[in-house]
Design a protein around this nucleic acid. Structure first.
Length: 259
DNA sequence: TCAGTTGTTTATAT
DNA sequence: AATATAAACAACTG
């Protein structure tokens, strides 16, 4: 489910299929995913405009057009597909941007987040401006500085979108496991070596995940074994531990990631 | 029936 | 003030 690599995949769907296409109309089958705008106004604002090259910041997809900008957040279950015109609706299709060559479909089972309409750059900034730098763009020195400013545990800091944008639960656990850092270590207590390791592993995990547009559940990765009933560390074989941090399940290796 | 789910926000507690 | 936790959102799955 959507973390930075997944959203980057959705960005590519838009970039490969929808850029330059004229939006004939927007069909809203469930207005529950539209935030701060009615289906009628949304359609009217976008009609006859063309998609431009899309951007992304953290988990937000920034879909610019020749008119307003569409901001999409996929929550835990959202997705974006390009389909033939008039293709049968999937179970959780909520909004369809109809062009003459095909349709861009926003789907989302749980509707935890949704779609916003930004009428100008200022509207975009209201949403994106609250976020920290994108996880793929942050430089090592800035990364270290961000960690030193925070008092909380390192995992809570990594998934805080106002610190760094794009990391979710799976990515944070995977990155900490690779960097051999305990998720409850205070962020400001990390040594310079640990800060560097964390940044390096963050980039490495993200780059690998971008290829498949998801955190790959390979058995050599924490992500590949974390949901097994008696999961053991792919690196050392020690039984993995589970606990809850920030109300989400955290998995780590008590041997590789000693406090 | 119950617990759990890869995201975010809000209320409450520390 | 900052940090941590739980609940809520909605709709499933095992």
């Amino acid at each position: 489910m959507p973390e930075l690599p997944d959203v980057e995949g959705f960005r590519r769907v838009l970039a490969e299929h929808a850029v330059g296409r004229r939006i004939e109309r927007v069909e809203v089958s469930d207005p529950g995913v539209l935030r701060g705008v009615t289906a009628c106004d949304f359609d009217a604002a976008l009609r006859d405009h063309r998609f431009r090259e899309p951007g992304r910041h953290g988990k937000w997809l920034i879909a610019g057009t020749s008119g307003p900008t569409v901001l999409m957040h996929f929550g835990m279950t959202g997705g974006l597909r390009w389909v033939d015109r008039g293709a049968p609706a999937a179970r959780y299709d909520r909004v369809s941007f109809v062009a003459s060559e095909g349709e861009l479909r926003f789907e989302d089972m749980r509707k935890l987040q949704g779609i916003r309409l930004a009428r100008d750059d200022d509207d975009v900034r209201k949403v994106i401006g609250a976020l920290g730098p994108d996880a793929l763009a942050v430089r090592p020195a800035d990364f270290a500085h961000l960690l030193e400013e925070r008092r909380g545990g390192i995992k809570a800091v990594l998934i805080d979108q106002e610190v760094i944008a794009g990391l979710g639960n799976l990515l944070a656990d995977e990155i900490l496991w690779r960097a051999r850092i305990n998720p409850r270590r205070p962020a400001r207590d990390l040594t310079v070596t640990e800060q560097r390791a964390l940044h390096t592993q963050m980039r490495r995990v993200l780059r690998a995940s971008l290829i498949t547009s998801r955190v790959p559940p390979r058995r050599s990765w924490l992500t590949g074994v974390r949901d097994q009933p008696a999961a053991s560390c792919p690196r050392c074989g020690t039984a993995l531990r589970r606990s809850t941090i920030g109300s989400r399940t955290t998995v780590w290796c008590p041997k590789c990631q000693e406090v």
